[in-house]
Write a protein that binds this DNA or RNA. Sequence first.
DNA 1: TTGTGCAATCCTGTATACCGTATCCCTAGA
DNA 2: TCTAGGGATACGGTATACAGGATTGCACAA
Lengths: 231, 231
Amino acid sequence: MSSQPGEPASVDIDADYKPLRDRVRDELRRRIIDDVYPPGTRLVENELASQLGVSRVPVREAMRALESEGFVKTVPRRGAVVVELSAQDVEELFDVREALEVLACQQAATRATKADLRRVGTTLARARKALASGDRLALGRANEAFHDEILKLSHNDLLQNVLHPLQGRLHWLLRQTGDPYDLIEEHTALFEAISSGSADLAAEHARQHARLNREIVRRLLAERNQSASSA
Amino acid sequence: MSSQPGEPASVDIDADYKPLRDRVRDELRRRIIDDVYPPGTRLVENELASQLGVSRVPVREAMRALESEGFVKTVPRRGAVVVELSAQDVEELFDVREALEVLACQQAATRATKADLRRVGTTLARARKALASGDRLALGRANEAFHDEILKLSHNDLLQNVLHPLQGRLHWLLRQTGDPYDLIEEHTALFEAISSGSADLAAEHARQHARLNREIVRRLLAERNQSASSA
DNA sequence: TTGTGCAATCCTGTATACCGTATCCCTAGA
DNA sequence: TCTAGGGATACGGTATACAGGATTGCACAA
C-alpha cells in the first residue's frame, strides 16, 4: 500500500488497542496471582464491574477467559470462585507441563536464532543479579521470564498458546508455596543445552528440570499440608 | 448431610442444565466442522443471534470459546472468521498432539480399568463393522470416538481439557482432507499396548501412530494443494 | 481506464436496564 | 437442635442504545 520499504507490514494505527474485556481479564488474573483474591474467593460480576468502573459484559467475558485458563471455576448459576489447586491438580499440571516444555525445548534447540539466545542470556543475567542481591521477588520474576522466553524460542504459536496459561498457573502455585529455591544453575544448564542446538540434549535437560521442579513443589506442599493439619 | 447412603451426592434437579452460551458454542462448532461455515466465513453476531433465536450475549461468549479452541480467529473491532489451517498450523497441531497423546497413552496404560478397556474394545469393534460395511462416515466417527476414549483412560482432567479441543480441530482437518485411510490395525495395536499395562510400550505406539497420521495428512494436503494450484 | 477520496453503512464493543429463577441465608417455629 | 419458609442476592439471558472503527460503494479526478 502506501507503506515504505523497511516499515512494518501494516499501518497499525491502533496496534496497542486492547479490548476492555482483555484488560479486565489481565487485571483480575493479576489480582488472583498476587493473592488479592485468594483461593475460594467468590468473584461477583456486579461488584467487580462497579469496582473497575465497567459494565457487566466485559467482566463476564473476562471471567470465561479466566475459567478456560484454569484460574476460576464457574458453577452454573452460582458464579465463579477462585480455584484451590488440589494435589491432583498439581500433579496433572506438572504432567502436562513436562510433556509440553520438553517439546518446547526440543524445538527451541533447532529453531532459536542468535538474537533469541542473547535475549534469554540477558534474562539469566538478571536472575543472577537478583539472586546475588537477595531480591526474591525479582528472582521469581526473572525465573518466570526465563520460561516464557524459552517458550518463545520454540517458534511454535500453538505450543505457546497452550503452554502459556499452564505456566501462569504454575507461577501462581510457586508464589503460593514461597518459591524459595535456586534454579539458576538448572536454568543455565538448560539454556546451554538449547544453545548447543541438540534437540535431544535440550529435551533431556528440560525433562530433568521439570521433574526436579515437581519434586520441590511436592515437598513444599507436603510441608504446608502438615502445618495446616496441625492447626 | 441429610442425604441417605447410596443416594446421589446432591439432589440434582437440574443435572442436565447447560447454559445457553454452551449450547450455542456447540452448535456453531458443529456447523464449522460440518462445513456449513467453511474456512474464511465471517461470523456476524447479529446474524447468528437472530438465526438461533437468542440475544447477542451468548453468541459473543460462544465465539470467545471457539476462538480459544482455535476454530475462529477474531480481530478486535472486525469480528470473527472461521480459520483456514495453514501448513504451519497443521504441523504445530501435530507437534503438540503427539506430545500430549503420548502422555495420555502412557497414563492410560497404568491407570485404565477393566471397564475402561471394555468400552474402548466396543468402539474398536464398531469401527471394524463400519469398515466392513463401507460406511466411511461411521468409520470416521468411530475413529474419533476411539481417540476421545483413550484420552479419558488417562484419568487426567487437565490433559483432557487441553487435548480435547486439539483433537476437535484434528478431526475437522481430517474431514476436510477426506479422512480416507484405514487406521484400525494401528488403533488395535495401540489399544493392545495400553491394555498390556506398559507405559513405555503404549508411548511408543502412540508416537508411531501420531507420526504415521501426520504423514498421511501431509500427503493429503500436498495433493490438495497441487490440484488447487493447477486450477 | 485506473485510481483516489469521501460518505454511507455495517458491525463490534460497551453500557444500561430489566426480568425470571435458582441459590443462599437468616429467622421463626416445632 | 433441626427444619421449613421467605426474602435477598446474583446469575443467565433479553432488549435496546450508541459511539466509533472498519468496510464498501460511488462519484470524481488524473
